[in-house]
Simulated scan of single mutants.
Amino acid sequence: MKAIIALEDGTTFEGHSFTGHGEAVGEIVFNTSLSGYQEILTDPSYTGQIVTMTYPLIGNYGTNPEDMESAAAHPKAFLIKEYNSYPSNYRSTKPLAEFLQEYGILGVEGFDTRALVRHIRTKGAMKGIVSTRDLDKEALVKKAQEWSGLVGQDMVKKVTCTSPYGWGENEPVAGSNFETAKKPGEKAFKVVAFDFGIKYNQLRLLQKKGCQVQVVPARTDAKTVLAMEPDGIFLSNGPGDPEGVEGVVDTIRELLGKKPIFGICLGHQMLGLAYGGSAYKLKFGHRGGNQPVKDLTTGHVEITSQNHGFCIDESTLPAGEVEVTHINLNDNSLEGMRHKKYPAFSVQYHPEHAPGPHDAEYLFDRFIDMMRAV
């Protein structure tokens, strides 16, 4: 059935839905990964967004329960060039269209995704709408313009857990103490992980490295966290504007210096705000599995997985207190930092990959070493 994609600047595209009727408004962004569409769809960081894949043929290998990065799928809509309705993979349990329908995500194919991506790269990420119900282009453009957008919005409250849980045999285990987490060893490090929209592979890797992980809601206060007597604190990824998230920066500021802290993506941004820095919106963001990042401490270049639309402004960080450790080689934006006084460090990209290259997994080892040294 016919579908219209309309952007706030009046640009429109025509395609057709492969998931049935629907309408969705959100920020239209693109991802350059060649595979891993299920991990992308189940990344909570895409909450409030309409995702366009640059790779032309999507759906080849279907979907399966093992590749979930959260308990649900999160984008408002999924835009592709061509859908493969006959997946061929021994792990597949259902085709992509059925997976999208299960989570109420509108899927659209059959339009020039290259033209849409080139437009966003030139003009910047913008508000948009996808619809099979309303085919009036002018009306759709107006709807896109009237949407609130992501700037200043607290998107974390839409995806954070409502109660604490541990990480068991590759799945969450309800409970509010470290005994709910699988014991990976006799001397396991106890880690409290703030859920801003956490991906499961972050929990898998922490456990693999010898940690018992207790996940807590984003608004958990510092007193509660410290009462759990963790060895370290992990700040997860998540969606939206870090400056729109309520009540978290003050908590992180209270925890600085008390326990080793490791932040990823939104967790990195929240840590930057706690240091006293500020954030800004990138023109079209970094999303994909091929982003080059230089580790300034070693000189090594990593190919990384990324998904973010906001960034910490390096010039706003307190001079002499925070050291920049990683930069993006495409645009020189800040990709990593560490505090010179407190045991705290963070990266903007996704060292847990899923999907993407494994070049940066060593950062989890760095966190373990930091907890061991305290």
Rank of each mutant, 00 (worst) to 15 (best):
T19L: 01
G20S: 12
H21Q: 15
H21F: 15
H21Y: 13
G22V: 00
G22P: 05
G22M: 02
E23L: 06
A24Q: 02
V25E: 00
V25L: 07
V25P: 01
V25H: 02
V25C: 08
G26S: 10
G26M: 04
G26C: 11
G26T: 13
E27H: 02
I28N: 02
V29Q: 00
V29P: 00
F30S: 07
T32K: 09
S33E: 06
L34Q: 14
L34W: 11
L34T: 12
L34Y: 10
L34S: 13
S35H: 12
S35F: 12
S35M: 15
G36R: 06
Y37R: 01
Y37N: 01
Q38T: 12
Q38M: 13
E39S: 08
E39G: 14
E39V: 10
E39C: 11
E39W: 10
E39L: 07
I40D: 09
I40C: 08
I40Y: 06
I40P: 06
L41N: 03
L41P: 05
L41H: 06
T42L: 05
D43P: 12
P44Q: 05
P44V: 05
P44L: 05
P44A: 07
P44H: 04
P44W: 01
S45R: 07
S45D: 07
S45L: 14
S45A: 15
S45Q: 13
S45N: 09
Y46S: 13
Y46R: 07
Y46K: 03
T47A: 09
G48T: 07
G48N: 01
Q49E: 15
I50T: 05
V51L: 10
V51W: 04
V51G: 02
V51H: 00
T52R: 00
T52A: 10
T52S: 09
M53E: 04
M53L: 14
M53A: 11
M53F: 14
T54S: 14
Y55D: 03
P56C: 10
L57W: 13
L57G: 03
I58G: 00
I58T: 08
I58F: 11
I58Q: 05
G59D: 04
G59C: 07
G59H: 02
G59V: 06
N60V: 11
Y61T: 12
G62I: 01
G62R: 07
G62Y: 04
G62V: 08
T63V: 12
T63M: 06
T63H: 03
T63G: 09
N64I: 10
N64A: 13
P65I: 07
P65Y: 08
E66G: 13
D67K: 13
D67M: 12
D67T: 14
M68W: 10
M68K: 01
M68E: 00
M68N: 01
M68D: 05
E69A: 13
E69P: 06
S70A: 13
S70E: 04
S70I: 08
S70Y: 11
S70P: 03
S70N: 08
A73Q: 05
A73D: 04
H74N: 04
H74S: 02
P75G: 05
K76T: 06
K76Q: 14
F78N: 01
F78S: 01
F78V: 01
L79Y: 04
L79F: 12
